[in-house]
Design a protein around this nucleic acid. Structure first.
Lengths: 251, 251
DNA sequence: CGGGGAATTGAATACGTTCAAAGGCCGTGG
DNA sequence: CCACGGCCTTTGAACGTATTCAATTCCCCG
């Protein structure tokens, strides 16, 4: 069996942008399909493809909510800070995915968003969205749909990761979740590059980085995945699904 | 210190209903505040207070999505079934809370909902909601707000429970989460009755019931909570917050 | 009062963590 | 282009925590 991953390491750091059609914000940028007359938020209000250096904050926990964002390239992590300054990773946002929605209700961002690598984001000011959507039913409708999908995704991720007992199940479920999400955005869910460090994954999954490392080697040795640093190839999805302990239709 | 819980066990099983004002579905039942003219879904479409026996299904995983629900009394659990027929508890719905929203996007319920005790639910058919909301902006607006709050709640619960490493943190966070949610609906968040079995909690938290049991006794002995079967009194919230390892502003 | 499921407790085992050390990758500077 | 240094990752061994399996107790309900 071929467990190897090509050793030439071209830098993928935040280079290729996701296609607009694959972006989670697309239905809000271009709500043309239902509107009767043509209309595009993108041209009017969306601040497109702002660069974000690795490690830079997009927004900070507690800041007043002001806009929705979509990641067009790169990836971010969402974190909370504990009293003693420790990070608590509560999520990852991949290229094509949106962030900021959770701040709408409390009017503040409930977590900080930090770029994991050099990234680009599109910014949609919430004021403009709200104002325009009151006049453009199609936009309002698409916004509604977006929140519904978001809700579903959150619930699914919760179901995937919450009740996983042992570390192997957690990691398997995590990898499957990533793979699904990459697929959804037009990337390969079979071979990809992890944008986050082992530490971040461990923190997110409630494990130690050492445990995680052992698990990666274990999954590698059993032939379920091929690992070379951050590069992952999903070799045996079936085994992973079994290892995750998840119902087939979820994973 | 008084670690005792009154020993008279009156049956609270699904007796008192939550007040309509405290119900998560209220903004959809009565979107009068913005509408100009008075209007109420409740009178027209909402099927009110349907009884549900303990153990009975409200809906099943995979069924076509048809309606939103609010629990007016009692409580439900949300579960997925694994291939081999094992339950995977993915959430609990308390009196005053809503369920079904996660089915909107995929057009199917992604999990089954089972009554934990004799309960009552109000049913709002989604067809009626959608139709009416296209004519009543206030309703549409409130629906939007509901999804936004739902999104926030899900994210918060995810943040609270996901990265909790050890069992004590998980249980503490779980109890704090329950307490918050009860408070929100006008119940006492300080003293309450767990509607679910130890097994269900353990399943949800990814622990064994034996471990859970030991933790309950431990928290009881340290004086953080008072436990008598399903009755819980939160004696020392500060200790619990510390034990949960959560940032203060979340817990 | 008695039966049965749920909850608790106990002892041995398995698993994940901890602390320490070594290895590998990458950017920097020679 | 290669050597150096730092950081991230991997590996090792001892320890601590959660799990397992079994036995007992507690409650709820008839």
């Amino acid at each position: 069996m071929d467990n190897s991953i090509s050793t030439d390491r071209k830098k993928r750091r935040g280079t290729q942008h996701v296609a607009c059609d694959d972006c989670g914000l697309f239905p809000l940028c271009n709500p043309i399909d239902l509107g009767g007359r043509e209309f595009s938020m993108a041209d009017e209000f969306v601040e497109r493809r702002q660069p974000l250096a690795a490690g830079e904050h997009l927004f900070r926990e507690g800041e007043p909510f002001s806009a929705l964002y979509a990641v067009t390239s790169g990836a971010l992590k969402l974190i909370n800070l504990t009293e003693d300054g420790q990070e608590l990773v509560v999520g990852f946002v991949l290229a094509g995915e949106t962030l900021g929605q959770t701040g709408i209700y409390p009017q503040r961002y409930p977590c900080s968003a930090i770029a994991l690598e050099d990234s680009h984001v599109c910014e949609l000011p919430y004021g403009s969205l709200k104002e325009t959507s009151s006049q453009v039913p199609a936009l309002s409708q698409n916004f509604q749909s977006m929140m519904q999908k978001e809700n579903f995704d959150l619930h699914r991720q919760f179901a995937m990761l919450m009740a996983r007992k042992n570390a192997e199940q957690r990691l398997s479920a995590f990898l499957l979740n990533l793979s699904m999400r990459l697929d959804e955005r037009g990337y390969s869910g079979e071979e990809f590059s992890l944008p986050m460090s082992r530490d971040d994954i461990a923190n997110f999954l409630g494990l130690r980085k050492e445990t995680l490392s052992r698990l990666f080697t274990k999954l590698h040795q059993t032939g379920a995945i091929a690992v070379r640093g951050k590069h992952i190839r999903m070799l045996d999805m079936e085994t992973l699904r079994d290892a995750s302990g998840l119902p087939r239709h979820i994973a």
